[in-house]
């Protein structure tokens, strides 16, 4: 096993164990903090997969902004204490984990995917591209050329989300 693979499996284990703890902890704050741990582990895996800029915004946007929003709402609604459990009963838990296991078995076919030969980039192409153009330009070049219209639509979506959030959370208009 190479060094990269060892690091990958370490962070994969961290991500999966944290995700499991996230869905099983009773207190929402504990769930949120385990989710942050999952997100950090995923950011590390993104670096191993040559997506440096995505890893950076994973930490900034997900682990930073979105999770702070979650924690803020949990604190605002005063749900931080671990109350009586909100999970289903034992029978329900068994059924749900069986459903989850079934889904893993179904999705496991993905592991054996090999992209068509003519679509594949040569080995190390992304590393080379990142070294030539820099980590940000790898994303920004297609973003502002091929994906310009989706980018502008996203900005409108975010504006609508801001207005919607204010309208929904306001006590009286």
């Amino acid at each position: 096993m190479s060094g990269t693979e060892a690091v990958f499996w370490f962070f994969a284990a961290v991500a999966i164990i944290s995700a499991f703890l996230c869905i099983t902890r009773r207190s929402p704050v504990a769930s949120a903090l385990w989710l942050v741990s999952t997100l950090f582990a995923l950011a590390a895996i993104f670096v191993l997969l040559d997506a440096h800029f995505i890893a950076a915004i994973q930490v900034l946007v997900y682990a930073g902004a979105i999770m702070v929003l979650f924690l803020f709402v949990i604190m605002l609604l005063n749900l931080g204490r671990a109350g009586p459990t909100d999970m289903l009963g034992w029978a329900g838990r068994l059924v749900m984990f069986a459903v989850g296991a079934l889904l893993v078995v179904e999705l496991w076919v993905l592991v054996r995917i090999v992209p068509a030969e003519e679509l594949q980039l040569p080995t190390g192409a992304m590393v080379q591209l990142t070294e030539q153009e820099g980590a940000v330009r790898v994303i920004s070049e297609p973003l502002f050329r091929g994906f310009l219209v989706p980018f502008e639509i996203t900005s409108i979506l975010l504006l609508a989300a801001i207005v919607g959030a204010v309208v929904l959370a306001k006590r009286k208009l």
Binding site: A15, I16, I23
Partner: peptide, 26 residues
């Protein structure tokens, strides 16, 4: 392959969590 496997496991954990919990924030 390993990344897609990890992705499958995390997705299934998310689905199990949605079905398992009753707290809307979780």
């Amino acid at each position: 392959g390993p990344s897609l496997g990890v992705s499958a496991i995390l997705f299934s954990l998310g689905v199990a969590g949605v079905l398992l919990r009753r707290n809307a924030i979780v």
